[in-house]
Amino acid sequence: MNALNKYTSGIAAFALVWLAPLAVALASPPHGEAEHAAGHAADHGAEHAGGIKWLGDGFLGGPGEDGRTGFLIILINFVVLMLVLNKLLFQNLRRSNAEASDVIRLELERATKARAEAEALVLEYETKLSALESEIVEIRAHAVQSAEAEHARILADAAEQAEKVKVAATRAAEREAARFRAELEREIVDQAMQRAEQAIRASFGGTDQRRLVDAWVEEVSSATIGGAN
């Protein structure tokens, strides 16, 4: 608004500075008329000797018989003209300028905001990028650590499995050895018993049978069977 006032004041000053002489010129008679006026002035004294005529001799200070228009009227006309111009042109011009200014300002704000966002985004991406590098390093370290742990675990499992296989094989071998040993012992015993039976059959006689029967009779005679008294 201040800028508009300044703009209006500038125009007014321009009019005063540059249009005043114009008005003076307009108020001065033409060359012929000037000469005539000079003569007339000479006739009528110092009143017609040039300068600003504030009020004309005509209606409401308009041009009179001398054809000169009063400066005040010119000034009023000018002010009216400025008011009309202001009403018809300057206000629209100011409005459109204000709208354009607002649009520009909004665009500028939007651009500023977009720039700030872009800068923030850049900053964020830069931060992420720097964090990504550290994250890559961390992931790599973690992967290495996991791989080492997995390696150790696999080795431990393999060692455990190997130990189990070893124990199982040892037990199986022991069982097999025990089975062979038992089978061998059983075979030895069977053969020994077979030999013993053959030897007994060959040597067993009536005396031996009587001796066994005597022992049986003696044992049974001294025993009690079925609750007998």
């Binding site: 009779v217 005679s221 069977i225 079925g226 007998a228 008294n229």
Partner: peptide, 13 residues
């Protein structure tokens, strides 16, 4: 006879 007698002694029957 000895066997029978031994059994009779042991069983009472």
């Amino acid at each position: 006879g000895r066997i029978k007698k031994a059994l009779e002694t042991a069983t009472g029957k």
